[in-house]
Design a protein around this nucleic acid. Sequence first.
RNA 1: GUGGUCGUAGCUCAAUGGUAGAGCCCCAGAUUGUGAUUCUGGUUGUUGCGGGUUCGAGCCCCGUCGAUCACCCCA
Length: 429
Amino acid sequence: MASFRTVKGFRDFFPEECALRNYIFDTWRSVARRYGFVEYEAPVVESTDLYRKKSGDEITSQLFCFSDKAEREISLRPEVTPSLARMATTRHRDYKKPMKWFQIGSCFRYEEPQEGRTREFIQFNADILGDASQGTDAELVALSIDVMLAFGIQAEDFVIRLSNRQIWTDFLADKNIALEHTSAFLQIIDKIERAKPEDTTKKLEAIGLTLDEVRSFMTGTDGDHPAFAALKADLSARGLWSYVKIDASIVRGLAYYTGTVFEVFDLKHGLRAVAGGGRYDKLCSLMSDGSVDMPAAGFAMGDVVLGILLSKTPGAQFGITEYLNAQQGVEAYVVIADEAQRAPALATVQALRSAGVRVDYSFSAQKVGKQFQAAENQKARLAVVFGAEYPQVAIKNLVSRSQELVAVEHLVSLVTEELKKPITGKLIA
RNA sequence: GUGGUCGUAGCUCAAUGGUAGAGCCCCAGAUUGUGAUUCUGGUUGUUGCGGGUUCGAGCCCCGUCGAUCACCCCA
């Protein structure tokens, strides 16, 4: 029994889990690049003040924050947007607009772990800076949809719940509600589906509203609302509007969103949001003390909920299996049937590896049967047998089980040739 | 930070308060030049940890750590 285990809320990635994680990374990366995004990276540790500035003092209760040896207050990042704002405002003149940036990295939140929520998680963040149009918002929504589709998560598996904070700002202005209530009001809307109606009623009355008028506004808000016009036209042209469901209760917890907000939800398992984001036009200005006023929008997708959804979605299994098969094991296994031939066998191993072939072999003398078993365990397509026939060696196709003797000097080219052929049939189970 | 449930081998799980078990996995052999199946053998444990009650605790009680669920929060 190991006397140590992982720190609460943190995960080990054993090889099979690491492979799945890499599949997620590769998929995120390839779709983002398809959209013309460039990758950047921010530090995992930042000044605690960076997060206080954005979210206020109370944020520290959810932060992995501590003092370093020089008594500097620092934190493990709970999200990457503040770092992005810092980087982007610092050197925004070096980059043409719009800036389409993405990042993949760990974030940390000091919360109670639950299913779909750990203390360390990995986020894919995609942001577009320097463009205030709804075409930007549409591009981000489209990217989030294409990411889901790239994972094999289909239209019937997920939905984009989308809204625009502006409709609530207008609603409050229309009702003559003072601006200072906006934040509290959005908090109420955010919880309106989960909270008890009587509690919501009480809170709304405190700022001069009734539950009925809020409810009727929500049900009366759909895709025809002018706030969504440009976004709808754009996504319709792409054939993606059908993935979107207008839902006025989506406001996102964060104070800094200013326009379009959206979340990606699974439709079959009642999981937490897979991704969320929106427009935050004032954040760069806030983070740079007004020196850089740059519109921005973006979204983040975490690996934890996504991973759960992938495991529960049959359509996602094919892509995972294909990726794992391509990544795991070797292409060829060198069987040393006669220990006297270990030296030339090792030379061949090196030659094959230099030629780019994934090769493995046994470190010590093993029965031939064991070595073939190892070859199969490693999912090798070919076995190369070094035995008494040397300098002739056998190439065995482990799929078709056919075998032929060849001269060792032709081996590398024959093996690479053979591996280029498509796989026919299945590996014998 | 608050409350409910749970914690036994690497994994999945058994065991009236009375000597801790099974399957799978892993390793070796049967089988010294060819992958399967089967068979045999082997490691499997401070019953999460620490106290307490009892002649005796995996089981009951308290604490603690962890998992999970519901809150809080969800950037």
